[in-house]
Nucleic acid binder design. Structure first.
Lengths: 218, 218
DNA sequence: GTCTATATCTAGATAGAC
DNA sequence: GTCTATCTAGATATAGAC
């Protein structure tokens, strides 16, 4: 009985770890596949192959395709929104903006699949995240745009449309993940090298400072 | 016999017109559906429903899904590339650029489905257009970047990375079609109204002239 | 917990009536 | 030329052996 207890404890610990590991493997594989083919274009078999696990395991861990997609998207959303926190009213405008945009570019280069999955979700009409965009993102952008407006009123930033400014930053930075393949085709080389990333980053900051009127050393 | 001849001629003319009409209806419906769900996420049934025709007709006119997709993409590619022709070495830089970027924005607002379909194709790894991007687009951008470089050398434009400049213009303008839903969610209103389009256009030009150093009236 | 085998449904495609 | 009815393949999902 003791042996039974011990072995079942050891077993459940093992099972817990196996479950955690497998779930992580599946989520990562799902991110890659959903990113390429979107929700409907992706098959559970593709994800299973990418994860190196039998298809039935995905159903065992996540129940169905919809739930697996939601779990993946949930994680991505948090990471997509996080950089916005860099914009703080009391901080220095140039430092804040550099921090914010730097994080957006880093996200594109470090988690291109996550960026593409998010892009796919929006392209397909945001069936899942639409409610969140209309509330959480809407409010967050309104709040951050007010901060930029204050900086403009204080003469620290050039006059601009602060709401559309976010659309421009998002598109400029995300394009390096979402349109990666087009960019690589035009550059005629791998756009994932350190050099290529540095050049892209320099260009984005160059554009950014000109738009904000912060080119000259402060 | 005369009657037979006449009626068969009339019939074939009619059939020709019906064919043309139906093909146009199907292509337009296919563009809308492929734009939302990508190649694999789209079903022939969806396109048939969107076109208001039986599914079998699509196969009758286009053979298979692949061919239908190619036909749609083919048309879009030409329209996607066309604006680049505005950039001409002998023309005035500001006029040329205004013309080019104006056409890109117009494309986003007038043919959002076409833009989204192209975006979907790239996101999914450009399985169809990859060869074209590596040759036609690669060469075209190299050629147009040289024109910008000349203008910079002539002091007519601020120093910048002219290749990445194209990535920035594409992303800034296309975002209004591709991420339409996200933008509408943030703005809290329909982004397809004339007012919203005018505001977006003004913002894009504002950014553009600052990046190019062409803000002041020349 | 894991995975093979299978049930059920829906996709692309086509044959054949009209 | 058009469209109903149907074939076959491949999808999601699950039951049940291990």
């Amino acid at each position: 009985m003791n042996e039974g207890l011990l072995s079942s404890v050891a077993e459940s610990l093992d099972k817990g770890r196996i479950r955690q590991d497998n779930e992580a493997i599946i989520l990562s594989a799902a991110e890659r596949v959903f990113a390429r083919y979107g929700f409907r274009g992706t098959t559970m078999q593709q994800i299973a192959d990418a994860a190196g696990l039998p298809k039935a395991n995905l159903h065992y861990y996540f129940g169905n395709k919809q739930t697996l997609y939601l779990r993946v998207l949930e994680e991505i959303l948090q990471d997509w929104l996080a950089p916005l926190e860099s914009l703080c009213a009391s901080a220095d405008p140039k430092t804040s903006l550099a921090d914010y945009v730097g994080k957006k570019i880093a996200f594109s280069f470090e988690r291109p699949e996550a960026s593409r999955l998010f892009a796919n979700e929006i392209l397909q009409g945001a069936p899942v995240v639409s409610p969140l965009l209309k509330t959480q993102l809407h409010d967050l952008v309104a709040q951050k745009a007010r901060i930029l407006d204050c900086w403009i009123a204080g003469g620290k930033l050039r006059q601009m449309d602060t709401t559309h400014f976010f659309f421009t930053v998002w598109s400029m930075t995300q394009t390096y993940a979402d349109f990666d393949i087009q960019i690589a085709a035009v550059l005629g080389s791998d756009s994932r090298t350190k050099d290529a990333q540095a050049r892209a980053t320099a260009h984005v900051f160059d554009c950014l400072w000109r738009i904000c009127g912060l080119e000259e050393e402060q």
